[in-house]
Nucleic acid binder design. Structure first.
Lengths: 212, 212
DNA sequence: ACTTTTAGACTGACCAGTCAGACTAAAAGG
DNA sequence: CCTTTTAGTCTGACTGGTCAGTCTAAAAGT
């Protein structure tokens, strides 16, 4: 309804039909509502309404509520993984150490979560559930985010910056958990803090200025 | 249906009516199911069935599904807070430093979560939701757990063990998050690890042997 | 021409919460 | 002893409402 989009004048170029933007809007609506209320408590009708489309459109674009949700999760994690990867690569390329890269990833994680708290909330709420249909989706999603952290840790170990007794896999999951939860907690319960304050607190924790 | 229970012969001693044990069983059933499926996706019928009682019994004991859930949360957090507090106090009483106490709390948290993963899963899934009815319950629950960690951090700062520039409130929430998520991740994705391995990885992280 | 969206009525399943009555003690009465 | 009575606890069929998913004919968009 109404104007919107445009895409310029003629050309058309063949790709990106209207569908794409509808799907985007459905994702945006769904992620907010599901983060607030949970998956089961959110109705398809609500999602459609918030996206400004008819209920039938949801089913024209996604075969079921479940599928909408799965694609939403996959769509979201790619953004996070990409943002972590970029932060790490940029740091190393700019002459930083691997530990600097780790710190940059913490920052990138915080920025990402600040920008998409709902998406993060939704991951955290679903990731460790045991019985779900989309367990496979979540496992792969988790793997993609962790892989980035683990690769930086491994590089640091290889380069001698970190002890080779470091348990890469457990440390990566603890780091990710620390950032996720600290960020959510910040947004929910201490929104008056700046991202710099949060970043500083986490940096200190990781760099051993807490218990030493 | 059928026989069950008994309660033995005479004495009885006056307290603990049947009700108490029914409520206990409903809590146990509910925490498992809700952790697996989420609150909305779990039916009262299911909870009743798993607890081995009729649906009506749930409503005899709790005024609504929501109330059952709230009482369940409160019931659970007291156990965690108590266990953290005990670990910290015991360490300090035994001549340990405040930093040792912190480490002991990490261990206590891991043990607790290993023993009640469902309860933990459930907290993590609900704590940062924005719109919920039981927001007040969850806020108070969070406060009770954080208060223990914060008090140990504050003592350590006061005693000069930690820098007085430490952001106690943010650090406490990051620590708690780190333990929660690392423990859940351990249970879900790396169950072959021992609690000692996980503890060691977290200890190292906090004690600065990661990025230094 | 062809794809996408609309509006909303409809169905079949499912579920929170209710209610009238049944089942337990264990005590009171005979 | 054996029989009520009583209070507390539990039962499960039932009600009223909600929701995922379907379907249609027409409109809009490209």
């Amino acid at each position: 309804m109404s104007s919107r989009s445009g895409k310029g004048g003629g050309a058309v170029a063949g790709a990106a039909p209207r569908r794409t933007s509808t799907r985007r809007r459905l994702f945006d609506a769904a992620v907010i509502l599901i983060a607030e209320q949970g998956f089961s408590a959110t109705t398809v009708e609500e999602i459609a309404e918030r996206a400004g489309v008819a209920k039938g459109t949801v089913y024209y674009n996604f075969s079921s509520k479940n599928v909408l949700y799965e694609e939403l999760l996959r769509d979201g994690v790619d953004l996070l993984a990409a943002s972590l990867r970029t932060a790490a690569d940029r740091t190393v390329a700019g002459g930083g150490t691997r530990v600097d890269a780790l710190d940059a990833m913490i920052r990138a994680g915080l920025d990402f979560i600040a920008g998409s708290p709902a998406l993060t909330q939704l991951y955290v709420a679903e990731l460790w559930r045991t019985n779900r249909t989309w367990r496979a989706t979540l496992t792969s999603v988790r793997g993609r985010a962790l892989a980035v952290v683990e690769s930086v840790l491994r590089d640091a170990v290889r380069g001698g910056e970190l002890s080779d007794e470091l348990d890469v896999s457990l440390t990566a999951s603890a780091l990710l958990g620390m950032v996720l939860v600290a960020a959510l907690d910040w947004q929910s319960f201490q929104p008056e803090r700046s991202v710099d304050e949060v970043h500083a607190a986490l940096s200190q924790l990781v760099q051993g200025r807490v218990g030493a």
